[in-house]
Design a binder for these strands. Structure first.
Lengths: 118, 118
DNA sequence: CAGAGTACTTGACATACGTCGAGGCTCTGC
DNA sequence: GCAGAGCCTCGACGTATGTCAAGTACTCTG
């Protein structure tokens, strides 16, 4: 990975034309790729699935530590990745942090890549 | 990545319930993640977009070398990743190899992750 | 057959990434 | 105020990955 990827603000919802509509621009390709990278890990897929299933209430770091068999540091790392990609939203409540899935962001990302969309 | 990811046959089309339908299994999470990993690179997104735009005829390695500014070895590497993930299909014709997008596989992958689907 | 064009493989390099242990911070309840 | 729970940050580690240069193999053309 010599050509290192730049840091981009990803917390917002992705917005670019679907790939089926024409050749994607370099900038859009980068945005899409960075979000996919945030999702391209078995732990994070499982994690997102658990959070999705929990609904709007969300789940805490500890809840996920119990489900997956990983350190709280590792879970925190993954939650950070997903949050930075805008796929998860975190809300602090007392000593805990509840993570909920950002369904709109996930839907938008899938919509851009879906060849059958639009 | 100490817990190294196993090698799995991915050339077929993904088939598992959408994440919105419930918590995904470890095996399905791994399958989804491996396909996303194959897609989570700006070059490969651009590449897929170009191939998609080319339609059923497909594109050759050289064509893509000209579009993106990379070595044929690098393009070959990326094409291999996408092919192994079942996202691209290769057909040899004389001295050339034409790559076409596997729309069904891409659609299936997006369908599994789309929270608005099903 | 010779040469050009195309594609894949291999090896090497630098960087990115997942994981953990240790430590520190904030909030809660006694 | 203290002890504990929950969460994050930091540093370190081993592995994976994107890129290229060089080499190899195949196909077509003349």
């Amino acid at each position: 990975m010599p050509k290192s990827l730049p840091i981009i603000e990803l917390s917002g919802t992705l917005c670019c034309p679907p790939v089926a509509a024409g050749v994607i621009s370099d900038a859009d390709a980068l945005e899409v790729a960075l979000r996919l990278k945030a999702l391209a890990d078995p732990v994070r897929i499982k994690l997102l699935s658990l959070v999705l299933a929990a609904g709007a209430a969300g789940l805490r770091n500890v809840d996920l530590v119990r489900e997956l068999q990983l350190t709280d540091a590792t879970i925190s790392h993954h939650l950070g990745q997903l949050s930075r990609a805008g796929l998860l939203s975190a809300v602090h409540q007392g000593a805990s942090t509840y993570y909920a899935a950002n369904r709109a962001a996930l839907g938008a990302l899938m919509g851009v890549l879906d060849p059958n969309c639009c």
